[in-house]
Write a protein that binds this DNA or RNA. Structure first.
Lengths: 233, 233
DNA sequence: CGCGGCGTTGATATTAATCAATACCCGTGG
DNA sequence: CCACGGGTATTGATTAATATCAACGCCGCG
């Protein structure tokens, strides 16, 4: 039986620290084997169980990687942002489905060529290893946030995650864009959609945030946010 | 400011697939720079914020890596088992505290020497990268299990994790040893200790498990277990 | 104008946290 | 050998939170 292989997003963002995705040199080497792909909003990039022939490096747009529970519910393991890598480095198959939430553009890197490149270039491979470690931390933080049984805490964690991805947009730092639906938020936080809605409005009543519209939230109280972050250096 | 660095356990176990921790060749190379360390039960191996000078490869015993929430509660990010690696590969500091649950023996690998070795040996580095990807999947599964708001499901997930680490012991495959306290289980699953106790006893009433003693559980209904596993190949 | 998807709001049921008390295990010392 | 004490596990009663069921509002689109 084949190895189960996850969508492994290797994120380039930072949690307080600037972290370039790859060195200039690394990008140039990868560019030699890359080609550009475009996807519509709602389009599935990979299905769970698909054989992986390439991995993607998101240029623009937002995606999600998810699986289905036995009861048919959807669980979102991660939202995928520009500079994220999607695909199994250590196996042949996708263990989760990946879908575009917004229109999405990505570089496609043939897996065979990539692996060969990594084997021949310890520095480049090291950058991937570093990113995997970083991604592992994000997954652990996600788990930590989920282990706190509070709807508000879970949502604040997600908002903070989204905030980190806002900056490149040059938008007001205090405004957070939510490209995904309430259902997606619910599936990521493990809450019911109704609870998501209620908790957001409660945070608004408490003066922490302001709901400009369903897809845009303004942070009113920065202090609460830092309080929601768990053990970050 | 220094990079935040997680305890990065790179697990050698498998989820359905045998996965040697390292090749024989890799082990031999690491042995050249390793030394043996012993820890008592309850002893702290590393404190959050410690500068990392070495990473550990657990030989025997069980540990836990955890942080504290603002309210003082403890969150366990991972239990650590033989063959796990503990330590930051991509930074200088530990982001979580690591404590021995049982007496613990580990190989200590000086970080500087290890990094140099990885730089010079793409094959060895590849094995570390593979393990990081594998570990990432485990963390994502942990998150998935936590996102299900059911005490029973969360506990079944943990029991399954422990079951995978039982096999080397040669014990009856259906018996699971729980080296950690109920408080540790609560901190890992995000439940209250009382809920852990109640849910375990409820599972016993339902005929799924049998509580031989607080530290030993027998699986009575294997089918329920597979049902608790989410999207495993 | 009506339809359908999405988001919100309300009422109720279920679940787990919390507070409090008791039982168990085990080592120590009388 | 047995009483004692401290940590750990369990059980009970109550409270708080969220899931669930149901309805409604909003809005873009045919």
């Amino acid at each position: 039986m084949a190895l189960p292989v996850a969508a492994v997003p290797l994120r380039a963002d930072k949690i307080g620290n600037a972290r370039p995705f790859l060195s200039l040199e690394g990008r140039q080497k990868l560019a030699l084997i890359a080609s550009l792909s475009r996807y519509d909003a709602g389009e599935v990039l990979f299905h769970e169980g698909d054989r992986a022939t390439c991995i993607l490096n998101i240029v623009s747009g937002v995606g999600k990687s998810y699986s289905f529970l036995p009861d048919g519910r959807e669980v979102i393991q991660a939202f995928l942002f520009p500079n994220d890598l999607i695909g199994p480095l250590d196996g042949d198959y996708f263990i989760s489905t990946v879908k575009a939430i917004t229109p999405l553009v990505a570089y496609s890197l043939p897996l065979a060529a990539l692996l060969q490149l990594l084997q021949s270039d310890p520095n480049l491979q090291w950058q991937f290893l570093t990113k995997a470690c970083h991604e592992l931390r994000l997954a652990q933080q996600h788990a930590i946030a989920l282990s706190q049984n509070s709807a508000k805490q879970r949502l604040l964690m997600l908002l903070n995650l989204l905030r980190l991805h806002n900056e490149p947009l040059g938008a007001e730092a205090s405004q957070i864009h939510l490209p995904m639906s309430r259902a997606d938020i619910a599936d990521y936080t493990g809450l019911a959609v109704e609870t998501v809605s209620r908790a957001l409005h409660q945070l608004q009543r408490e003066g922490v945030i302001r709901l400009i519209n369903p897809q845009c939230i303004e942070i009113m109280d920065q202090a609460i946010f830092t309080a929601a972050l768990v053990s970050e250096g």
